[in-house]
């Protein structure tokens, strides 16, 4: 029950906060963006606010965290009190500090992974659509085959082969995600490449790179952004599921996905500890997708506002 009350309270506080934040942005930002900011729905303002707070926490983690990321400062599972605001974890490390450092590691890894997946996936996808023919067929069939392998099991295979450093983790998850991005990018780009203005640009003698950059990408951006929002959040879940299967991030580094896994058993006894990292992921997911929804809405050209 306590959790529910906490949720209600949090939502009640976030509405005026978002409102103030939107008003502040409308004041501070340069003219064009200020108009956009003024017109955006409260949910989007809330999303941007949350993302800003996360970025702030991630950037200044060492200054904000009361204790170090890995130092054992107490006994296991101390309750919440004034020295350890959110108690301690299994090894007696400060939970709040781990959460704060977790923001840095988790968001950093998720962003790197998703960005890599999108650069590779969308460039290849658009390129395949643009070139067509054998290249398109070959790439697409190969990607189809990779997608037909369950992603978690495929990641498991790759990580077992290549080891589980942070770098391989990023590369492997990005590779798996890139196949999904490729498909979307290719199908969107296929719609665009048949347009007259692409033909015109080709006749002008523009190169592939120019076409991708200047003509196709801007027109394919909306669905890609929507996908980005979800993929970004799924990275946490993948890491969490991988740590369920015994892989995942190198300890003693803190990341939310593994923190959920490490403390998950406690929920069996109604202990809220694992809800903290899970809640941190959920909040970010909701925030990112609120902003994405807003952008999609703007892109769809639908004028009415709710």
């Amino acid at each position: 029950m306590g959790v529910l009350w906490f949720l209600v309270l949090a939502i009640a506080c976030s509405i005026p906060l978002s409102y103030v934040f939107r008003a502040a942005m409308a004041q501070v930002l340069p003219h064009d963006m200020a108009i956009a900011a003024r017109d955006m729905p409260l949910t989007a303002a809330f999303g941007i606010l949350v993302i800003a707070v996360y970025i702030f926490i991630a950037t200044f983690a060492p200054l904000l965290a009361p204790y170090a990321e890995r130092t054992v400062v107490g006994t296991s599972f101390q309750p919440w009190d004034s020295t350890h605001l959110l108690g301690t974890d299994r090894l007696g490390r400060d939970m709040l500090s781990r959460l704060i450092y977790g923001a840095r590691n988790t968001v950093g890894i998720a962003f790197a992974t998703t960005a890599l997946a999108f650069v590779v996936g969308s460039l290849l996808g658009i390129w395949a659509a643009l070139r067509g023919g054998w290249l398109d067929q070959g790439l697409s069939r190969f990607v189809d085959a990779l997608m037909a392998i369950p992603s978690l099991i495929f990641s498991l295979l790759l990580l077992t082969i290549f080891g589980t450093s942070v770098l391989t983790l990023i590369l492997v998850i990005a590779a798996v995600d890139a196949t999904r991005v490729y498909r979307i990018a290719r199908s969107v780009a296929q719609g665009v490449v048949v347009m007259d203005y692409i033909e015109a640009a080709r006749l002008r003698g523009e190169g592939n790179w120019y076409l991708i950059r200047r003509e196709i990408l801007p027109n394919a951006l909306a669905p890609l952004v929507a996908e980005f929002g979800l993929r970004f959040c799924f990275v946490f879940l993948t890491i969490s599921s991988l740590s369920f299967l015994g892989l995942g991030i190198q300890p003693p580094m803190a990341d939310w996905g593994s923190m959920v896994r490490d403390n998950a058993t406690l929920i069996t006894f109604g202990d809220v500890t694992p809800l903290l990292p899970a809640g941190a992921i959920a909040l970010l997911t909701v925030a990112v997708n609120f902003v994405v929804d807003w952008q999609l809405y703007r892109a769809s050209g639908l004028k009415e506002q709710g």
């Binding site: 890995r70 090894l91 990580l159 077992t160 080891g163 190198q250 300890p251 003693p252």
Partner: peptide, 25 residues
Amino acid sequence: DAGALFAETAAQAGININLVREPND
């Protein structure tokens, strides 16, 4: 977890234990 604890106490003795988590598999 035991490795992480070991690394923590060893650090107090000037020993740097770099924990490498290997796949269970």
